[in-house]
Design a protein around this nucleic acid. Sequence first.
DNA 1: AATATAATGCAACATAGTTGCAATAAAAAA
DNA 2: TTTTTTATTGCAACTATGTTGCATTATATT
Lengths: 126, 126
Amino acid sequence: MGIIRKTKSVKTLLNEFNKNSSAISVTELITRLNSKFNKTTIYRVLDKLEDDGVLHSFLGKNGLKWYAKCNGCTADNHSDVHPHFQCLDCGKVDCLSINITLPKIPNRKIDLAQFLIQGQCDECLT
Amino acid sequence: MGIIRKTKSVKTLLNEFNKNSSAISVTELITRLNSKFNKTTIYRVLDKLEDDGVLHSFLGKNGLKWYAKCNGCTADNHSDVHPHFQCLDCGKVDCLSINITLPKIPNRKIDLAQFLIQGQCDECLT
DNA sequence: AATATAATGCAACATAGTTGCAATAAAAAA
DNA sequence: TTTTTTATTGCAACTATGTTGCATTATATT
């Protein structure tokens, strides 16, 4: 699939991700935009933006889905494999620009990896 | 909290994890045992077994909760930090006995880390 | 055997996410 | 510009995972 039309919801969602560089959870987006868009629309647009290589998704605390801007991904190749850091105090999630080396595993084919690190962010530490 | 009484549900659940060494999802356990125990009981007993350092939990595909036997953990110290491998074909999840080195992150305190690797297991590859 | 209280079942609830379908809006064609 | 095509949206209803309060039951202690 992927995005075909530049609709209001697409522009608004992209704008949310351009405001700052942190990742945003789907529930947060639904809360922020629920006066303008139905949650079904938000789920569907995020899905398509991920297909297009504009956003990437991952699971945070409690298995909640988060999205963040991709960096050098295309619709065909999601090259973004980096750890994510979630603060257990404030809940904020950031992408860590660290290259992780996947362990060698015999007799298995690795397709993707998710690495979630949890702790306290700089703001909550002080 | 933690387990205080050796009840039927505790014994049955421990037995499920002793049958083989794979991890088991909560939904799978509820399906297997739903004629014997209420799902609330299953959630609560798993929770307590984790508190006791008998089981550890992690999130698999789609944010579903999985449990597996701990190896050398106590109630005070969950020392198990290893990657998990989930087969995208058959859904099976295994603990990988690999030591992962957490990346150094400035200005952040690391409490825990989850590393989920997805792909195809040996059985589904052939 | 009597007592204290941990554990259980049940119903009701909370929340994340999905689906089908009719209505609407964006882009292409006329 | 107007018409036509069809992608997108909103809505309601639904599924699934997980949680909570409370009365009942079972375990362990006295």
